[in-house]
Design a protein around this nucleic acid. Structure first.
Lengths: 155, 155
DNA sequence: ATGTTGGTTTAATATAAATTAAACTAAACT
DNA sequence: AGTTTAGTTTAATTTATATTAAACCAACAT
């Protein structure tokens, strides 16, 4: 997919793509990130990605947009130009984690609804659901507090 | 999918299934969990799931097995019987989270490899990768420690 | 106003994942 | 031994997701 990579590099691209996949990203998104790593350039152009990765404009467009949405890449224009340039973004991990907390909160709420909807006699099922909600109640309280102590690298 | 549910219950099943999906589970797995909640019984049998959910044996078999693997359900036999019964499992959230840490560790390692593989001149890309690895280094240290303080509900 | 650049949108296609039907197996029962 | 029960496995099909090709659009250039 990316030209002229050796075996180690190819393995790396595969692993990266597979792992980002668990984050809900498509393979091409992984390859785009990998291309940043191997291209030896910080700033990339749309056309370059299309040509170098041998991927359609539409796919690049879509993948860049999802990567931008989650903060992995940053799109900007140089004064006067209508063309966009792309960089890997300075991820704010704290914010990212707090976003994650929102979906955990949603999950916990669903499980709480489950406790409501299931019968009290259904002891084991309720124990299961309560085990989960109890944990996430705790996590949703403690984790953001812990996160406050995180300090990003100076750089 | 489950018979005789009202609108609220159906919405619940949908939400549950969609959320478990983010955990990598298929829709049917969500429906199985939901069936535990609505069936008013703690203990279910294979055939009942096949019939009540109108799903193939194969799919029930596979979904039960993945649910079992992640600890969501518990399969057991009654003495002498060759038939299995199924319950929602008493999830050990601590263990589950520590499992999760393993994949976070793998992800961090890939990002570290990325730092190695990218050129030093590639400052922005390296900043991106370092931002991620620095955070996960911290998380992998602090989170397990924090987790030690979690106490599950008595019940 | 016409053409070119830098994409985006839409509809069709390809790829991957979930589900099914049907054949199979191992354990218990007759 | 032959049959039933409780699933499992395998190959085919369906469904969902990602990618593509092609038409389109907005902004600037000519």
């Amino acid at each position: 997919m990316i030209k002229n990579l050796n075996k180690e590099q190819l393995r790396f691209v595969e692993k990266l793509a597979r792992n980002l996949d668990s984050l809900g990203l498509s393979k091409i998104s992984g390859v785009i990130i990998a291309y940043f790593i191997f291209s030896n350039r910080d700033e990339l152009e749309f056309d370059e990605l299309v040509e170098q990765l041998n991927v359609s404009k539409a796919s690049i467009s879509n993948n860049l947009r999802t990567l931008e949405k989650i903060g992995f890449i940053y799109r900007y224009r140089k004064s006067g130009q209508r063309k966009s340039y792309y960089q890997l973004g300075a991820l704010d991990m704290k914010t990212m984690m707090m976003e994650r907390m929102k979906s955990i909160e949603a999950f916990r709420d669903i499980m709480k609804k489950g406790v409501e909807l299931s019968s009290d006699e259904n002891e084991n099922t309720q124990r299961f659901l309560r085990g989960i909600t109890h944990f996430y109640d705790w996590l949703l309280q403690e984790f953001p507090a812990m996160l406050e102590y995180y300090e990003k690298p100076e750089s």
